[in-house]
Write a protein that binds this DNA or RNA. Structure first.
Length: 280
DNA sequence: TTTGGGGCTATAC
DNA sequence: GTATAGCCCCAAA
């Protein structure tokens, strides 16, 4: 306590936000050592970063500062340890909403919006994942339910139902979805990125904090966002492969057109000279 | 060694 | 007196 308090400057705060956006929360040492931010953070320790992030988080959350740390010394509830995440309960909902102070700049605030600019296929896949993960029907959701869910949230073309059916079939073929009778549901590995057992919440918590930090969303939203990313990557790969095929097809057509042009020229020349041309 | 979390205290209002 | 923010300490991984 001997040293005077060193107030954080806006540059330092910006550097911290950028560092968290780049490395994720909890990587304070990495952020502190990162040459990109070290210019601003050289006078701060990793502990300072952690403390500042904690303060920034609770401020952005609209709650009192570090309410938990001001609770009595006695550790009353050891069953549910305080989480480092600035978490608030959404009113009327059981979903946890993570308020991330960095969400205003480098971090996407709505995972679905950021994909709407992508390929239509990716967009539809994202809509499907969103619908299925929200509907969460253990027996799966039928096409009508999915269409109805998506129509409520997104603008869709008139022939959307047909397009959706096609996407659903494709996702089933790609083993991203399961089809049970006429209903579709998400495969477990799409949500959790593994074919093994679903990890226990305690096991995924560290990753969850990072995911939440990046996405500013709930566990469910994080899972959906991850699924979006997988679908997007796969579709990009698919689009790239299709583009290669298309390029090859166009090249072949150009070659054929060239040959045709050559033939036409020859015929024209022969005709010009009064020769008789036989065309098979 | 690094991180998360609890706690203390200076400062501003 | 209260709220806030910076810093310190300690346990756990």
């Amino acid at each position: 306590m001997g040293n005077p308090k060193q107030k954080w400057t806006s540059e330092e705060e910006e550097a911290l936000r950028a560092g968290v956006a780049k490395h994720g929360t909890g990587k304070w040492k990495n952020i502190q050592k990162d040459p990109e931010f070290n210019h601003f953070l050289y006078s701060r320790s990793n502990i300072d970063l952690k403390d500042k992030w904690r303060n920034m988080s609770v401020s952005a959350n609209g709650q009192g500062p570090r309410e938990k740390s001001r609770t009595p010394k006695a550790k009353i509830n050891t069953d549910s340890p305080a989480t480092p995440l600035p978490i608030a309960q959404a009113p009327g909902s059981s979903a946890l909403v993570v308020v991330d102070p960095a969400s205003t700049d480098a971090i996407m605030d709505d995972s679905s919006k950021c994909l709407l600019d992508g390929k239509t296929v990716s967009k539809y896949n994202a809509m499907i994942y969103e619908a299925l993960s929200t509907l969460k029907d253990p027996n799966g959701s039928d096409t009508s339910a999915i269409v109805s869910f998506i129509e409520k949230r997104h603008e869709v073309p008139q022939n959307f139902r047909r397009l959706l059916s096609s996407r659903l079939r494709r996702l089933v073929a790609q083993e991203k979805l399961e089809k049970v009778q006429n209903c579709y549901r998400l495969r477990r590995e799409v949500l959790y990125g593994t074919k093994g057992p679903i990890p226990k919440p305690k096991e995924i918590r560290p990753r969850l904090s990072q995911i939440n930090s990046y996405l500013g969303g709930t566990l469910e939203e994080a899972a959906v966002a991850a699924a979006y990313k997988v679908a997007e990557a796969e579709n990009k790969s698919f689009v790239a492969a299709e583009a290669v095929k298309e390029a090859e097809r166009v090249a072949k057509m150009a070659e054929e057109a060239d040959a045709f042009l050559q033939l036409a020229k020859e015929i024209y020349d022969k005709c010009s000279r009064g020769e008789v041309v036989m065309v098979a």
